[in-house]
Lab assay of single mutants.
Amino acid sequence: PKCKGCFKAIVAGDQNVEYKGTVWHKDCFTCSNCKQVIGTGSFFPKGEDFYCVTCHETKF
Results as ranks from 00 to 15, higher is better:
Phe44Cys: 09
Tyr19Ile: 15
Gly41His: 02
Lys20Asn: 08
Asp14Pro: 12
Gly13Leu: 10
Ser42Phe: 03
Ile38Pro: 03
Gly13Pro: 09
Ser32Ile: 05
Phe60Tyr: 12
Pro45Arg: 07
Thr54Met: 08
Tyr51Val: 13
Asn16Val: 05
Thr58Ala: 08
Lys35Asp: 10
Thr54Arg: 13
Thr58His: 03
Lys35Arg: 13
Gly21Lys: 15
Gly5Cys: 13
Asp27Gly: 11
Ala12Arg: 08
Cys34Phe: 01
Glu18Met: 04
Gly39Asp: 10
His25Met: 01
Gly13Glu: 11
Glu57Leu: 02
Val23Leu: 13
Lys59Trp: 10
Thr30Asp: 14
Cys34Trp: 00
Ser32His: 08
Ile10Tyr: 06
Gly21Arg: 13
Gln36Asn: 12
Tyr51Asp: 15
Thr58Glu: 07
Val37Pro: 11
Val37Arg: 14
Val37Ile: 11
Cys31Lys: 00
Gly39Cys: 06
Gln36Ser: 12
Cys28Asp: 02
Val53Glu: 08
Lys8Met: 12
Cys28Trp: 00
Pro45Cys: 04
Thr30Glu: 10
Phe29Glu: 01
Lys20Pro: 05
Cys55Phe: 00
Ser42Met: 03
Ser42Ala: 11
Phe29Lys: 10
Lys59Tyr: 11
Asp49Cys: 10
Phe60Ser: 12
Lys46Leu: 12
Lys4Val: 15
Val11Ile: 06
Thr40Cys: 03
Asn33Arg: 01
Lys20Asp: 13
Lys8Gly: 09
His56Tyr: 10
Gln36Leu: 07
Thr22His: 09
Cys3Arg: 03
His56Glu: 13
Asn16Trp: 08
Thr54Trp: 03
His56Ile: 01
Thr40Val: 06
Phe29Trp: 06
Asp27Ile: 13
Lys8Phe: 04
Val17Ser: 07
Gln36Met: 04
His56Thr: 05
Tyr51Phe: 10
Lys20Phe: 14
Asp27His: 05
Lys35Leu: 10
Thr58Asp: 12
Val53Gln: 11
Lys35Val: 05
Cys34Leu: 00
Val11Trp: 07
Gln36Lys: 05
Phe43Ile: 05
Phe60Pro: 14
Pro1Trp: 14
Val23Tyr: 08
Lys8Ala: 04
Lys20Gly: 13
Cys28Gln: 00
Gly13Thr: 14
Ser42Lys: 12
Lys2Gln: 12
Pro1Val: 15
Cys3Ser: 13
Thr22Ala: 09
Lys26Phe: 03
His56Met: 07
Tyr51Arg: 06
His56Cys: 06
Cys28Arg: 01
Phe43Asn: 08
Cys28Ala: 00
Val53Phe: 10
Ser32Asn: 05
Ile38Asp: 02
Pro1Leu: 15
Lys4Arg: 07
Thr30Ser: 05
Glu48Trp: 06
Cys28Asn: 01
Ala9Val: 02
Cys6Ile: 00
Val37Tyr: 10
Glu48Ile: 15
Thr40Asn: 02
Lys59Ala: 12
Glu57Val: 05
Cys28Tyr: 00
Gly13His: 04
Ala12Met: 14
Cys3Met: 04
Cys55His: 03
Lys46Gln: 02
Lys35His: 08
Cys34Arg: 01
Ser42Glu: 15
Phe7Glu: 14
Gly13Phe: 03
Val17Ala: 11
Lys26Gly: 13
Phe43Arg: 10
Phe43Ser: 14
Gln15Ile: 09
Thr30Met: 14
Ala12Gly: 14
Val37Gly: 06
Cys6Lys: 00
Glu18Lys: 04
Thr54Ala: 05
Val17Phe: 09
Tyr51Lys: 09
Phe29Thr: 01
Ser32Thr: 09
Cys55Glu: 02
Cys6Gln: 01
Phe60Met: 06
Lys59Val: 14
Tyr19Arg: 12
Phe43Lys: 09
Phe43Tyr: 06
Ile10Leu: 14
Phe29Ala: 04
Gln15Ala: 06
Asn16Glu: 14
Phe29Gly: 07
Cys28Lys: 01
Asp49Leu: 13
Val37Met: 03
Gly5Phe: 04
Thr58Lys: 13
Gly39Gln: 09
Lys59Asn: 03
Thr58Met: 02
Trp24Cys: 02
Phe7Lys: 10
Lys26Met: 10
Asp14Glu: 13
Lys59Glu: 07
Lys8Gln: 10
Glu48Tyr: 02
Ile38Tyr: 01
Lys46Ile: 05
Ile38Leu: 05
Glu18Ala: 02
Gly21Tyr: 03
Ile10Gln: 08
Ser32Met: 08
Pro45Leu: 03
Asn16Met: 07
Thr40Gly: 11
Ile10Met: 10
Glu18Cys: 09
Val53Lys: 09
Phe44Tyr: 02
Cys52Phe: 00
Gly5Pro: 01
Gln36Glu: 02
Cys31Val: 00
Lys4Gln: 10
Lys2Tyr: 15
Tyr51Ile: 05
His56Lys: 13
Phe7Thr: 10
Asp49Asn: 10
Thr54Val: 10
Lys35Ser: 10
Val17Lys: 06
Pro1Ala: 15
Cys55Ala: 00
Glu57Thr: 09
Phe29Asn: 07
Glu18Arg: 05
Lys59Arg: 12
Cys3Tyr: 08
Tyr51Ala: 02
Lys26Glu: 10
Val37Thr: 08
Tyr19Leu: 13
Lys4Phe: 15
Glu18Asn: 03
Asp49Arg: 10
Cys6Gly: 01
Lys8Asp: 06
His25Glu: 03
Gly5Thr: 03
Cys31Ser: 01
Asn16Tyr: 02
Phe50Lys: 06
Phe44Met: 12
Ala9Asn: 01
Ser32Trp: 12
Lys59Phe: 06
Glu18Gly: 11
Cys3Pro: 01
Ser42Asn: 03
Lys2Leu: 15
Pro45Val: 06
Glu57Cys: 05
Lys59His: 10
Lys59Gly: 11
Val17Met: 14
Tyr19Asn: 01
Glu57Arg: 06
Gly39Phe: 06
Val17Cys: 10
Phe44Gly: 04
Cys6Phe: 00
Cys52His: 07
Asp27Asn: 06
Tyr51His: 06
Val23Thr: 12
Phe7Trp: 13
Cys31Ile: 08
Lys46Pro: 00
Glu18Phe: 08
Lys35Cys: 11
Gln15His: 14
Phe60Gly: 12
Cys55Thr: 01
Tyr19Gln: 14
Cys52Met: 02
Lys4Cys: 11
Cys52Gln: 01
Asn16Cys: 02
Cys34Asn: 00
Cys31Gly: 00
Ala9Trp: 02
Thr30Phe: 05
Thr40Met: 08
Phe43Leu: 12
Thr30Tyr: 13
